[in-house]
């Protein structure tokens, strides 16, 4: 059983009278622990695919099985629970809450899940050390550098120990050196077993992924799998 199984996915947006076929006939299977780069020009449906994988969006047709369970038929609260426990998001613009400290931002998914404060504090402390942020725990996002912000965001995305990490242009707002640093961080997480799915424009990052899914006009044009050694 694959971790992610998409079959016959269609997603159509209505913009006034026009219909935009954002995803068409998508069949995609991803095993646990894979490192996948989703690439393609703007408007090719990469982000829509990522939102769908993260249960932020629902397909108009087709089925999405996550860990063997058909998640398209789940109710909104059950989908929220799946997002909470199984999926981590990393965004291009970090999406940190500016009034919360780094530690509070990292703790947010646990706070929302109702995990008791003692457990939260212990795990946040460990995450701050793991991501080299222990000196920045009480800093607010506007007191952090871009790289530090993205590290906080990644710490937040992984604090619930999700099975899948979805990253939408995670290095898009960072300079080259910082971008590399963040990429390595994500790859480290992948090496330790988390499935990593990255949407990127950056060919360099795409090169590093073991599997590349190339999209065009809402369809998968090419799926370059690693050849088994």
């Amino acid at each position: 059983m694959a971790q992610v199984e998409l079959a016959g996915i269609e997603r159509i947006f209505h913009l006034g009278d026009a219909e935009v076929h954002a995803l068409r006939a998508i069949d995609l299977t991803i095993e646990a622990g894979e490192y996948v780069a989703v690439m393609g020009p703007s408007g090719s449906g990469k982000s829509t695919l990522l939102n769908l994988l993260g249960l932020l969006d629902l397909p108009d047709q087709g089925t999405y099985r996550l860990e063997g369970r058909d998640v398209t038929s789940l109710g909104p609260d059950q989908q929220a629970a799946v997002r909470s426990g199984r999926i981590g998001f990393v965004f291009q613009s970090f999406h940190l809450i500016s009034r919360l400290s780094a530690a509070e931002n990292i703790a947010l998914p646990m706070t929302l899940a109702g995990i008791p404060p003692e457990t939260r504090d212990a795990r946040v402390r460990q995450a701050l050390i793991d991501f080299g942020l222990d000196a920045r725990a009480d800093h607010r996002p506007d007191q952090l550098s871009g790289g530090q912000r993205q590290r906080v965001a990644i710490a937040r995305a992984t604090i619930m120990q999700p099975a899948i990490l979805l990253a939408d242009e995670p290095t898009g707002n960072l300079d080259r050196a910082t971008g590399h640093e963040v990429t390595r961080l994500l790859e480290d997480l992948n090496t330790r077993g988390t499935t990593l799915i990255v949407v990127t424009h950056d060919p360099a990052m795409g090169e590093r992924a073991r599997r590349r899914v190339l999209m065009e006009d809402g369809a998968i044009r090419r799926d370059e799998r690693p050849t088994p050694p």
Binding site: G54, L56, P76, D77, A80, A81, R83, S84, G85, I87, F89, H95, I97, L108, P109, L112, A113, R156, M160
Partner: peptide, 16 residues
């Protein structure tokens, strides 16, 4: 609005 979107992405239910 974007904070609400984030909370949803982080697993917050509509009730929360």
């Amino acid at each position: 609005t974007s904070e609400i979107g984030l909370l949803k992405a982080l697993g917050a239910s509509a009730a929360i």
